[in-house]
Nucleic acid binder design. Structure first.
Length: 183
DNA sequence: CGTCAGATTCTCT
DNA sequence: GAGAATCTGACGC
């Protein structure tokens, strides 16, 4: 299992290193495993796409906390988003996990952050959980041979940050999400 | 193929 | 009361 020191670095570095790692979730329906193939980095308060840019609130409390924890929140009233807190406490860096490849005990599609959470059984109840088990943890695995980079998805409001190349994905994987605006 | 509207709930102003 | 780090299904070509 990956330890806390793995997460204690800037989000853009962590987002890249997370590719290929195995995400494990213990649910009522059993242990689910998926291989991470797509991530996005959010760089704290200076990053206009990051929730932390609006200041520290009750909602973002986990985001400002120590690294290696799960930041899970609801978006568009329907979808849970699974993020991993990075860097150090108060930095508010995080990595959004956008897609995984099903490995074990996964039946639904996982090619998008909302779908991923449903398929893995992740919900807001997991907000603040430490990624050292027994509910959620990561196991080390080889990284993809070829990693592609693009702007992030769905953040048109982020002005100077919306074109920043902070989305990373396995160029060979068929399980990466395919948004309209692909570059 | 493509574009588009609607679903649905939480948070902050 | 607006808008959000989304997804699905319907429609038109």
């Amino acid at each position: 299992m990956l330890g806390l020191d793995f997460y204690a670095r800037a989000a853009d570095s962590l987002a890249r290193e997370l590719l290929g790692q195995t995400l494990c979730v213990q649910t009522e329906a059993g242990l689910r495993k998926g291989r991470i193939v797509e991530t996005e980095a959010y760089l704290g308060e200076i990053d206009l796409a990051c929730h932390a840019s609006k200041g520290r609130t009750k909602r973002t409390e986990t985001l400002f906390g120590p690294p290696g924890h799960a930041y899970v929140y609801l978006i568009y009233g329907m979808y849970d988003m699974f993020n991993i807190v990075a860097d150090e406490e108060d930095s508010a860096h995080a990595v959004l996990v956008r897609a995984v490849e099903p490995l074990e005990n996964i039946e639904l599609k996982t090619d998008g952050p909302g779908k991923l959470c449903r398929a893995m059984g992740i919900s807001r109840e997991h907000n603040g959980v430490e990624l050292l088990g027994p509910e959620i943890w990561l196991e080390p695995a080889p990284m993809p041979q070829e990693i592609a980079v693009s702007p992030r998805i769905g953040i048109d409001y982020a002005k100077d940050w919306k074109e920043a190349p902070l989305r990373f994905f396995d160029a060979k994987s068929k399980f990466v999400s395919r948004p309209k605006k692909q570059n």
